Amino acid sequence: LQLFIKTLTGKTFTVEMEPSDTIENLKAKIQDKEGIPPDQQRLIFAGKQLEDGRTLSDYNIQKESTLHLVL
């Protein structure tokens, strides 16, 4: 599923993930694309901070959802 990642600077980029992927996987993918170390990434969806060990489906993140990346 394609997700939109929006940064505080207003930049938006996309990543391609599976619902079974963990937040950790997502942070690694963001590191590949943007060079931001996972330990500096905080991801927010629907007002909640996402925890590394959980999956996208745990948070009911669907295709074309927008996640906010806070550094």
Rank of each mutant, 00 (worst) to 15 (best):
F13T: 03
G35R: 06
K48C: 04
D58W: 13
D39T: 14
K27W: 02
E24K: 13
Q62A: 10
I30L: 04
Q31A: 13
P19Q: 12
E16W: 14
L67N: 02
L69C: 02
Q62G: 13
L50W: 02
K29P: 00
I5E: 00
D21Q: 10
F4Y: 15
D32S: 12
L26E: 00
E34N: 12
P19T: 07
T22G: 04
L69H: 01
D39L: 12
D58I: 03
L71Q: 10
K27N: 01
D21E: 08
S20I: 07
T22M: 07
L69Q: 01
E34T: 12
L26D: 00
Q31V: 04
K11H: 14
T55Y: 08
V15A: 03
A46Q: 12
F4A: 06
E16L: 15
R54M: 14
I5H: 00
L56V: 06
T12N: 10
T9H: 14
K6S: 10
L3M: 04
R42Y: 14
D52W: 03
L56M: 06
Q31H: 07
E24S: 15
P37S: 11
P19E: 12
T22H: 05
S57V: 11
A28Y: 11
G10E: 05
K11M: 08
V70A: 08
S65T: 09
K48D: 06
Q2M: 15
K6N: 07
L8P: 14
K29I: 11
V70S: 07
K6T: 15
T14C: 04
V70K: 06
Q40M: 13
P38R: 15
L69A: 02
V15S: 01
Q31N: 13
G35S: 06
P19F: 10
A28N: 12
T9W: 11
T14V: 10
L67H: 02
D52E: 10
I61A: 02
A46S: 11
I61P: 03
E18L: 11
S57M: 11
I36Q: 03
L56N: 00
E16H: 13
I44R: 06
Q31S: 15
E16A: 12
I44S: 09
G10S: 04
L67K: 01
L1Y: 11
G35H: 09
P19W: 08
E18W: 13
K27V: 01
D21F: 04
I36R: 03
M17I: 13
D39M: 12
K33G: 05
M17T: 07
L8Y: 12
Q2N: 09
